[in-house]
């Protein structure tokens, strides 16, 4: 019983830590610091997944943990760092909405996901239950980062933190199949995007990867 509650506490802390770091992402106003916070996010995710692998006795989850650690916490942030440097966009992030409002919206989203998930999963075991509630919070906060940022790099960071929430949910659901495959699939997807951003630049089609600059070219060419 003692062990069980310790296992519960540790996974609880790690999942809660992820939500907290998601909040930290909301108010980063520089790309470099946003990338650093994201790397931290990925490290905590890796720890959380590894812990799940240990308590569920599911060794294949260690693969997902290693992917999170190597790919998301090291390779991608380093690559994005270099891209940001090359593009010369390491100044401020232009946030579409003010930080105060963003934080309020973030709190509302977390409250929403807690109320929603804790209510509907009343019969599930408490560990999976809280894990899901935290995971949904991370997903929604990632979405919020994507919505409030106009810059392509920070949108990708938002997407990756969203995806971290999904991995958290998938590993929390005990015995779920295909988790490793899904995390590999996601990594490939992200690699494609990062390469895409990089390629656009070296082809010099864009002066910036700011999506609002792209908006000028869109659509109904009147």
């Amino acid at each position: 019983m003692q062990m069980h509650s310790l296992a519960f506490d540790i996974s609880h802390t790690l999942a809660g830590g992820l939500v907290l770091i998601s909040f930290m992402m909301l108010y980063q106003d520089r790309l470099y610091s946003l990338l650093n916070v994201f790397a931290l996010h990925a490290v905590v995710l890796a720890l959380s997944v590894a812990w799940q692998a240990y308590i569920q006795d599911a060794p294949h989850l260690y693969i997902t943990a290693v992917i999170a650690l190597v790919f998301k916490a090291i390779v991608i942030p380093v690559a994005l760092h270099r891209i940001v440097k090359q593009l010369g966009i390491h100044r401020d992030i232009e946030s579409a909405v003010s930080i105060g409002l963003t934080m309020l919206a973030g709190m509302a989203l977390v409250a929403l996901s807690m109320v929603l998930m804790l209510r509907v999963t009343a019969d599930a075991d408490p560990l999976a239950r809280e894990d899901l509630a935290f995971a949904l919070s991370v997903v929604l906060l990632g979405l919020l980062v994507m919505v409030t940022r106009r810059n392509a790099v920070s949108q990708v960071v938002g997407f990756m933190s969203l995806e971290n929430g999904l991995v958290l949910a998938a590993t929390g659901a005990k015995g779920m199949p295909l988790v490793v495959e899904i995390s590999v699939a996601f990594s490939i997807l992200i690699a494609f995007i990062v390469i895409g951003i990089f390629l656009f630049r070296i082809r010099e089609r864009f002066d910036s990867v700011d999506v609002s600059a792209l908006d000028d070219y869109r659509g109904e060419r009147r």
Partner: peptide, 8 residues
């Protein structure tokens, strides 16, 4: 690889 295509 036009602006419009990449944005889409």
């Amino acid at each position: 690889r036009t602006h419009a295509a990449l944005e889409a």
